[in-house]
Amino acid sequence: MSDVKTSQRILLSIAVGDAYGAGFEFEAPEVVERENDGKHYRKRAGFTPGHYTDDTQMTLAIWDAVRLGGPFTPRYLADRFVYVYHRDPRPGYARGFEGVLKACKNGTELLEKLKPTSDRNGAAMRSVPLGLLLSIPKVKAYAKIQAAITHNTPGGIASSQAVGLMAHFGLKRLGKLSELAAFLEKNVPGTPWSEPWKEEVPLHGIATVRAALTALLACRKQSNLLRAAVAFTGDTDSVAAIALGCSACFAEYQQDLPSVLIRGLENGPYGRDYLKALETTK
Rank of each mutant, 00 (worst) to 15 (best):
K113E: 01
V201Q: 07
E27Y: 00
V100S: 02
T56E: 11
K43I: 00
K102C: 07
H51V: 04
A147C: 10
N36K: 13
V4W: 14
R220K: 12
E199A: 15
S7C: 12
F81P: 05
A241H: 05
L132N: 04
T6M: 13
G205A: 06
K138N: 01
A148P: 10
V163H: 02
Q254N: 04
T281K: 15
A212T: 03
L130P: 03
P74E: 07
K144I: 00
V139R: 14
A207K: 12
K102T: 10
E266P: 00
Y93C: 08
H40G: 08
L68P: 06
G50A: 10
A141F: 04
R80N: 10
L77D: 04
A228N: 06
L226W: 09
G96Q: 11
A240S: 15
L114A: 03
V201T: 08
M58W: 08
D88E: 14
M1P: 15
L217C: 10
G268M: 05
F81C: 07
K113Y: 01
A28Q: 14
L184I: 04
V31C: 04
S2E: 11
R95K: 14
C249K: 03
A277T: 04
L244E: 12
T281R: 14
Q161H: 02
Q8K: 14
Y83E: 15
R272K: 15
C249I: 03
H86E: 15
V4E: 12
G268Q: 12
K138C: 00
A15W: 05
S223E: 14
G264I: 09
G23M: 06
G96L: 08
I149M: 14
N106T: 05
R9H: 04
R80I: 04
D54S: 10
S159E: 07
F250W: 11
F97H: 09
K39F: 04
H51D: 09
I242T: 00
M166I: 15
R272D: 06
Q57S: 05
L60V: 06
L114S: 03
T56W: 12
E33V: 02
F232R: 01
G96C: 00
A15R: 07
